[in-house]
Amino acid sequence: MNYKKIFNIFILLTFFTLIEFYISFFLINSTLVKNIIYIFLTFLKSYYIVFYFMHVNSEKLYYKLLFILPIILLLFLTTIIFIEYYEVL
């Protein structure tokens, strides 16, 4: 991990944010497609932040599991809750 690599990640994160900003008022009319793109880009950004800035990438395997498994469970629960919300409407 050196300065060049961290600078590349910085460029990537800025690029993803600019894409989100750009498609928020141009390009696509469908709200569903827009939302799927937003959520996909958000998880991509959070992957880079957690694995490289918070250096989970260089930890041992059991530490990785300890940090990541609760978050995956939480995402699973949130997905179920959102599906239930949409069924109510």
């Binding site: 944010t17 989100e20 937003y38 880009l41 959070s46 932040i49 957690v50």
Partner: peptide, 22 residues
């Protein structure tokens, strides 16, 4: 302290999507 600071950044990324964009 760095972990906490990156965590604040991470939360902002999620707020930016879920509150402002969607």
């Amino acid at each position: 302290a760095g972990l906490y600071w990156h965590f604040v950044d991470l939360i902002w990324v999620f707020i930016f999507t879920f509150i402002y964009l969607i």
